[in-house]
């Protein structure tokens, strides 16, 4: 069976490597991008089986990219898991988990992530 290709998009390069290592240890192939614009370009270059997408990023944030991909007929079927560092602890921000789901993300994972729990979410969508 072909390896599943997962794109990880986050502006924290250390976190990208940690998530990539966990996914590779489960037999996945991993692409890496470090902001929303690069993530968008990566999707055009090679269609991923799933995207792990951070919310707060320079240039184009995860909500915007998620909305764009879900509005596009060619990419709307790609499962997207949002990584969000902000929730109830930061009430002044415009970013909340609920907003994440309203952008039609398939699931979300709150930071700090639990790598084992993350695989449960990812594998359920593959």
């Amino acid at each position: 069976m072909a390896k599943k290709y997962i794109l990880v998009v986050d502006d924290d390069p250390d976190l990208v490597e940690t998530v990539a290592m966990m996914l590779e240890s489960k037999g996945c192939e991993v692409g890496r991008a470090y902001d929303g614009v690069e993530g968008e370009e990566s999707v055009k270059e090679r269609r991923p089986d799933l995207i792990v997408l951070d919310v707060m990023m320079p240039r184009k944030d995860g909500y915007v990219l998620c909305s764009e991909l879900k509005a596009n007929e060619e990419t709307r079927d790609i499962p997207i898991v949002l990584l969000t560092a902000v929730g109830e602890a930061v009430p002044t921000t415009t970013y909340t988990h609920a907003d994440g789901m309203s952008t039609e993300a398939d699931d979300y994972i709150a930071k700090p992530i639990d790598t084992a729990g993350m695989w449960e979410v990812v594998s359920s969508l593959l």
Binding site: T18, M56, V86, T93, P112, T115
Partner: peptide, 19 residues
């Protein structure tokens, strides 16, 4: 500013690491 708020929200007694 948003970045500062996020950082301030992490004040665990036992810091968590990803792995």
């Amino acid at each position: 500013q948003l970045y500062k708020e996020v950082v301030a929200s992490y004040q665990e007694k036992q810091p968590k690491i990803y792995a």
